[in-house]
């Protein structure tokens, strides 16, 4: 089984977090999985790690609709952070609004990080795929 050091999950729905974690455990070996209840908590935590020269997640599962700071706002801020390594960010949303897809394409093209787009519910094989590439 592939080993991944650090995975982050940003979602306000505990059931989704539970689901992603459960599926991750069955396809990959991961040292640390951290979850954040909104974009702001996630950003603050990652920013603190960068300042403290600690490891940051290699893979991030990102929900869009969240209180306080949503997925897009998080991406906006995250892309400004001085991160040399290529982080894989998987947007996982229940939104089927075409506007959200357009926004994703916009973000995808202006960063060296890999950003993908998935609709909920996310499948086990999709998670396997994501972790394999990363």
């Amino acid at each position: 089984m592939k080993k991944i050091k650090f995975i982050g999950i940003v979602d306000d729905d505990p059931i989704t977090i539970f689901g992603i974690k459960k599926m991750l455990n069955s396809v990959v070996e991961c040292e640390t999985i951290e979850d954040y209840r909104n974009g702001k908590i996630a950003f603050d935590s990652i920013n603190k790690k960068i300042i403290g020269n600690e490891d940051i997640p290699e893979i991030i599962f990102l929900d869009i609709n969240m209180p306080i700071m949503d997925g897009w706002q998080f991406l906006e801020e995250f892309l400004k952070l001085p991160i040399k390594k290529r982080v894989r960010i998987n947007i996982v949303t229940s939104s089927i609004d075409p506007y959200d897809r357009k926004k994703w394409e916009c973000f995808k093209d202006k960063t060296h990080h890999l950003i993908t787009f998935n609709n909920k519910p996310i499948k086990r094989n999709e998670i396997a795929e994501i972790t394999k590439v990363a």
């Binding site: 729905d13 609709n65 229940s94 089927i96 909920k120 519910p121 996310i122």
Partner: peptide, 9 residues
């Protein structure tokens, strides 16, 4: 959808 996604998962 967010709820039905949870159901199916």
């Amino acid at each position: 959808r967010s709820h039905t996604a949870n159901f199916s998962m």
